[in-house]
Measured scan of single mutants.
Amino acid sequence: GLTEEQKQEIREAFDLFDTDGSGTIDAKELKVAMRALGFEPKKEEIKKMISEIDKDGSGTIDFEEFLTMMTA
Rank of each mutant, 00 (worst) to 15 (best):
E44S: 11
I61Q: 00
G59D: 06
L37I: 06
K31L: 15
D18L: 04
K55T: 09
E4S: 10
T68R: 09
L2A: 04
L67G: 00
T71M: 10
E4H: 08
G1R: 11
E65A: 13
F66K: 00
D56K: 08
G1M: 11
L37V: 06
R11P: 00
S51K: 09
I25N: 00
K43D: 15
D56T: 10
K43C: 14
D26G: 07
L16W: 14
E4R: 11
K47L: 14
G38V: 01
E45G: 06
E29F: 13
I61E: 00
I61G: 00
F63C: 01
P41Y: 15
D15H: 08
D15E: 08
D15S: 05
I61C: 01
T60K: 12
K7V: 13
T71L: 09
M49H: 04
G21L: 05
T68M: 13
Q8V: 08
A72K: 12
R11G: 01
F63I: 06
I10Q: 02
D56C: 10
K55L: 11
E40Q: 10
Q8I: 08
S22R: 06
I50H: 02
S58P: 03
R35K: 14
F14N: 01
S58Y: 08
K43V: 13
D56W: 07
P41S: 07
D18W: 04
L37H: 05
A33R: 02
M49K: 06
Q6E: 08
P41C: 15
S51P: 03
G1T: 09
F66Q: 00
E29S: 10
E52C: 15
I25D: 00
M49Y: 03
L2Q: 03
S22A: 04
L2N: 03
M69K: 02
G57N: 09
S22P: 01
R35H: 09
M34A: 02
T19I: 14
E44T: 06
L67P: 00
F63Q: 01
I25H: 00
K43H: 13
K31F: 14
E29H: 13
L16G: 04
E65I: 07
L30R: 00
K28E: 15
L30T: 01
T3C: 09
D18E: 01
A13Q: 10
T19D: 04
I25S: 00
F39H: 09
D56R: 11
F63H: 00
A33D: 00
A36F: 12
F14I: 01
E5F: 10
K7D: 03
D18T: 03
A27L: 14
I50K: 01
K31I: 15
D54Y: 08
A72Q: 09
T71H: 05
L30A: 03
A36N: 09
D56S: 12
R11H: 03
L16P: 01
A33Y: 03
S58T: 12
Q6R: 15
E12T: 14
I50A: 03
G57T: 05
F39A: 02
A13Y: 11
A13K: 12
P41V: 15
T24M: 05
M34H: 01
A13M: 14
E45T: 10
D62E: 07
K7F: 13
G57E: 12
R11Q: 05
S58D: 14
S51V: 05
M34C: 10
T3W: 04
V32L: 14
L16D: 03
E44V: 07
L16N: 09
L67I: 07
E40K: 11
D20T: 08
A72H: 14
A72M: 13
T60I: 05
L16K: 14
F63K: 01
D26A: 07
Q6S: 07
I61A: 01
E5M: 11
D54E: 08
D20G: 03
F66D: 00
F39D: 03
E45C: 15
R35C: 14
E40I: 09
G38I: 01
I10C: 11
A72Y: 07
F14W: 04
F14Q: 01
M70S: 01
L37Q: 03
S22F: 03
K42V: 11
I46M: 06
D20I: 03
K42Q: 11
K47A: 12
D20H: 05
F17V: 15
G38W: 01
K48D: 06
Q8W: 07
A36C: 14
K48P: 02
E5R: 12
A13D: 02
T24Q: 08
E64P: 05
L30S: 01
E12V: 10
I10W: 15
D54I: 10
L67N: 01
G1H: 14
K47D: 15
M70F: 11
E29R: 10
I10S: 02
A13S: 05
K55I: 10
D26W: 05
A27V: 15
G21S: 07
E52M: 14
T68F: 10
E5A: 13
F63W: 10
G21T: 03
G1C: 14
T60Q: 12
Q8G: 06
E64S: 08
A36Y: 14
E52K: 12
E5P: 06
K48F: 04
G38M: 01
F17L: 11
A13F: 15
T60C: 08
E65F: 09
K55S: 09
D54K: 12
E5N: 09
G38P: 01
G23M: 02
R35I: 14
M69Y: 15
P41K: 06
E44C: 13
I61Y: 03
A72G: 08
E9H: 15
S22W: 03
A33M: 14
K31R: 10
I50M: 13
F66P: 00
K31C: 15
G21M: 05
T24P: 01
E44Y: 02
E64K: 07
E4W: 08
I53M: 13
T3N: 07
T24N: 05
E52H: 13
T3P: 04
M34G: 01
A72I: 11
G38Q: 02
K43L: 15
G1A: 09
T19C: 11
E12K: 14
E44W: 04
G59A: 06
D62F: 04
S51C: 10
E44D: 08
G38R: 00
I10E: 00
I10A: 08
L67T: 02
K43Y: 15
M70Q: 01
A33I: 15
M70L: 13
I50P: 01
